[in-house]
Every structure is written in C-alpha cells, then in structure tokens.
C-alpha cells in the first residue's frame, strides 16, 4: 500500500512543490540512526567475521593471515604428533548453552503462564500493582540480582547456614558452581521477559470465548488447552524468544554462579578477549553464537509466518 501511495506521489512530483524539501527532511531525520548503526553495529559485525577468519596472535589481537584454524579449534585439537583429534571441550559448552537456555525458557514458561493468567483475573488496580512488582526487579541492577543468589547459595551462604541452624543438614555440597545454580539465576533474571508478553496476550483474549467454551460443555482443562493456550501462542512465542536469545549469550550467571569450570558460550567468548587473548577464536565463537541465534529466529519466523489461528498470524 505504501508503495502504491509513493508511486502515486511520484507521478505528481512536478505539481507537489514541497516534495524535495520533505525528502531531505526524511533524510536528515533518519541519517543519524543509520550512521550510528552502520558504524557501530554493521561494521563491527563485519570485522568480527573478518577476524574470525584470521590467524590469532599469541600476544593478543590477530595477524592478517587467512586461516580457518579458529573454527577448527572449536572441534579439534592437535595432539603431540600434530594429528587432529576430535575435542569435545567446546562442543560440551555449546551444548550446555543450548540446553540451559532451553531449560530456562521452558521453566519460565511453566511459571509465567499461571502467573500471567492469575494477574489478568485481578481488579485493575491490583493488576497494575502486580505488573509493577514484576517489572521492578528488572530495574534493579542485573549484577546485584545475580549476586543475591551468590549470597544465598554460596558455601556458608544464607541457605546453608539457615538449614544448618534448623538442624536439617550439615556440611552439604556447595550449591554454587553447577548447572542448577546457573539455571536458577537465569530463570530469576529473565522471567519478567516471559510474563509480560504472555500477560498481554491473555489480556487481549475475549473473556466470552472461555464462557462460550464452557457453555458448549468444555471442561476447564479442555478450555485451557483448546481455547486459551492456542490463542495465547503469539505471546508465548514472543516470551520464548525474549528469554531464549539473551540466555544464549548470557555472561553473568555462568561467571558468578557457574564458576570458572562450568562455562557457557557467553563467558567462553569473553574469556578469549580478557584472559586468553585469542581474538580469532573468540570471534569465531561469536560468529557461531550469532549463527545459532539467526537460525533460531529464522526457524521461528518461518513457523509463525503460517497463521497460527486464522486472522491472528503473528
């Protein structure tokens, strides 16, 4: 439609005097955004691809010699005889990242739907209050929120000393520095991003639909699975993306709750730039992460381009 109007205007350019003026205003308005994004997003991404295909410099940075060694390094190591051996070290980290991000998104979903539904059933003022309470921790520094879990889970931490004090346990294994600790931290960090879109889609739902369903002898459970959940799918999908994608690149939770040993892609990449100073390897890992995210988003876009419910394609 826009194209059509544009064309109609073009034919008309000669009599429409302010045409040129308006066009330059458009340019002036959009130019800063394009400049910023071009120089600070697109060029750096280009550089990342470039660096990932260069040779790493043991003294930091990279050497401008083409090599796919850094990609090879993700899968293989050289043994003493210079033979390539399959190395699962990094594959495990990638797998753990995918697994933890999926688990986080699924747990968030399982908690978020009942909570969002519960909120949508409250009076308007209660709704506003509860939504405020959900977004509030989000404004509190991310580092502090993850730190709170360090405080709770660490050796001699709040949880352990409380349990010991109550005589329930003594000298248990550290709760920190494992997959579960990271999972708890990630769910805690990202769950508001799941609740809000789901809540929005539940709010949009016509309340008469549930009434119509039960009028037609549907039980609550079948109303939930056959009416409410399918109609909330756009919100659920949006929430899933909003949680899953940042989880793939998350850094804080693996660093603070996972310790040095149980790494995820985020802190593995960061290490290449801070400790290991292997830029090419870091860049290639970043490219792999980017490709994973893009594949996920494209898969999702393809799936949701088919209308989920007639007339309510995402």
């Amino acid at each position: 439609m826009n194209q059509i109007i544009n064309n109609a205007h073009k034919q008309n350019a000669s009599i429409n005097k302010p045409f040129n003026l308006r066009l330059s205003w458009n340019l002036i308005g959009l130019m800063p955004a394009y400049l910023v994004m071009f120089f600070l997003m697109i060029i750096p991404l280009g550089i990342i691809f470039y660096v990932s295909m260069m040779t790493s410099d043991p003294y930091g940075g990279y050497e401008a010699i083409f090599s796919l060694e850094s990609y090879q390094q993700i899968l293989f190591t050289y043994d003493w005889d210079d033979n390539l051996n399959l190395n699962f070290q990094y594959l495990i980290i990638i797998a753990r990242t995918l697994l933890l991000a999926s688990a986080t998104a699924i747990i968030c979903l399982l908690i978020s739907f009942p909570v969002a539904y519960f909120i949508s059933r409250q009076s308007n003022s209660t709704k506003a209050l509860l939504l405020y309470l959900i977004t509030l921790p989000f404004w509190v520094s991310m580092v502090i929120r993850v730190y709170a879990w360090v405080l709770i889970l660490s050796n001699d931490g709040v949880l352990e000393s409380s349990l010991t004090f109550l005589g329930l346990t003594s000298g248990m294994d550290s709760l920190l520095y494992n997959n579960n600790a990271m999972l708890v931290g990630m769910v805690y960090s990202y769950i508001p991003l799941m609740i809000l879109p789901i809540y929005a889609s539940i709010e949009k739902l016509d309340a008469r639909l549930t009434e119509a369903a039960s009028d037609l002898y549907s039980t609550r459970l079948s109303t939930l699975t056959k009416i409410i959940l399918p109609l909330c799918k756009p919100g659920i999908v949006a929430g899933f993306i909003l949680v899953f994608v940042p989880c793939l690149g998350t850094v804080l939770e693996p660093m603070l709750l996972g310790g040095g040993k149980t790494m995820m892609m985020g802190n593995l990449i960061q290490n290449q730039f801070s400790i290991a100073r292997n830029w090419s390897f870091g860049a290639s890992l970043a490219v792999v992460l980017l490709i994973i995210v893009m594949l996920f988003l494209m898969w999702n876009a393809r799936k949701s381009s088919r209308p989920i419910v007639e007339g309510s394609a995402v």
């Binding site: 550089i47 690149g249 960061q270 830029w279 992460l289």
Partner: peptide, 18 residues
C-alpha cells in the same frame, strides 16, 4: 532495532575489536 536482535556479547566483542 538491530541491537535487540543479536546477543549482547557478540555486539560487545565486535565493538571492542572496532
């Protein structure tokens, strides 16, 4: 909206190299 679409760690290392 590009910055919303890619993981922040990728943006961070990219801009560091730049």
């Amino acid at each position: 909206n590009l910055p919303l679409m890619l993981p922040e760690i990728v943006f961070a290392v990219a801009i560091l190299i730049l």
